[in-house]
Design a protein around this nucleic acid. Structure first.
Lengths: 211, 211
DNA sequence: ACTTGTCTCCCCAATATTGGGGATTTATCG
DNA sequence: CGATAAATCCCCAATATTGGGGAGACAAGT
């Protein structure tokens, strides 16, 4: 039996969902609430496996409530549901540790699928949400491989040190080479990256994922 | 009709999937191949809506094939399938523009669901893959908000300039303030961030998402 | 044998940065 | 009205960085 706690401020949806979930094999609805202010307390009381949380609610947002729950009971799975597919909300929810993010749908079995998925340790994302997440992912990690620069192993090593905020002297010690050598390498790095200061090199290194 | 092109080196699975997909309403299997070397050519020939691509194949990996396809036909949806849920592979596939990533499953309707999802512009991720993606996302974006530092608006502005690799003089010009003022602000920033050089400040700014 | 690339180190001089003081103005808050 | 925070500017001196040279050692490839 998967124990479920539901937070949803819309009375009609809350009651419909309650009815559906309560009558689905394998699920046990511990409670359904219109307000998540007491979420932490309710989680402690009912020890649910999965919390189904509307993102937009009065008093306290679903994300805040989830954050609070996760802080106390990190093992509780939280499934965020919303009508919006706002980028910021999705982003915030994921960062706050959401185990799933589904758009409200008239197809009730979607809720059940999502609940089962997160209960089993996976995550469940509605297709349009998943598309957003992948897009965000790409925009973060796929860099413009525009001007590929080939740094020698030593240069990469030195650059990595620079990214750590180390000075010439510290780099020399860390790499077991002389101060002058560090100087030489950095001169070469600057030329290859077309920069002429440490901060620039660091930024470029990070955005080119050379480190 | 959703036109599909299948790449799968395992003969048995390829034939099973072909049979299933070809006999599913709304799907039209344009072809099934054991090798993706000719993938770009085949895509041009059949103009599929969705390419179902095994990640591990001889000669050329599914990711490479997808990259090639996406370069020529970015609008073609590519659904990656694999037996592995290796982090690196998932990561590489997403960065290369995968529209979906599913684990091989005996439940054939999963393939159909995934195909429909990506065809409709969404993304489809198997629960365990979705969990990995969310975890990667969190590890990237959830910072240790440990030592929250409050920079004044001007300080933030100056810090942003530093991240762009600007020198004191350039920052002074950009912000329409004097050189000495930049100096003062940077001194304060260093103190607040507990650093004592520009590169360190830049790195800290980036990882604390202060910019 | 010769070139090429990498790593190593040095000299010198011009700039830039850092850290320590201090000062003034403005605005906001109680 | 006094206190406080923010923003603006200045001086000075110690360090650090940057950019220009050059040079030897060593390995790999032509």
């Amino acid at each position: 039996m998967i124990r479920i706690l539901l937070f949803e401020d819309n009375k009609h949806l809350r009651e419909s969902l309650s009815l559906y979930l309560a009558n689905t094999d394998g699920l046990w609805l511990s409670g359904a609430y219109a307000d998540a202010t007491e979420a932490v307390k309710l989680v402690r009381k009912y020890q649910p496996d999965v919390v189904l949380m509307d993102i937009q609610m009065p008093h306290i947002s679903g994300i805040e409530a989830m954050r609070a729950i996760k802080k106390v009971n990190p093992e509780v799975k939280v499934l965020i549901q919303t009508v919006f597919e706002n980028d910021d909300k999705v982003f915030a929810a994921i960062c706050a540790g959401a185990n799933g993010y589904i758009l409200k749908t008239p197809r009730a079995e979607e809720y059940v699928n999502a609940i089962r998925d997160v209960y089993n340790g996976g995550s469940h994302l509605s297709p349009s949400i998943a598309a957003k997440v992948l897009a965000m992912f790409q925009s973060q990690f796929v860099m413009k491989e525009q001007t590929y620069v080939s740094l020698t192993p030593r240069e990469k090593e030195v650059l990595q040190c620079m990214v750590k905020g180390m000075s010439y002297k510290m780099i020399a010690d860390a790499c077991h080479i002389g101060f002058s050598t560090v100087h030489s390498h950095i001169k070469n790095i600057y030329e290859k990256l077309h920069v002429n200061s440490a901060p620039e090199a660091v930024v470029k290194a990070l955005e080119m994922r050379l480190v």
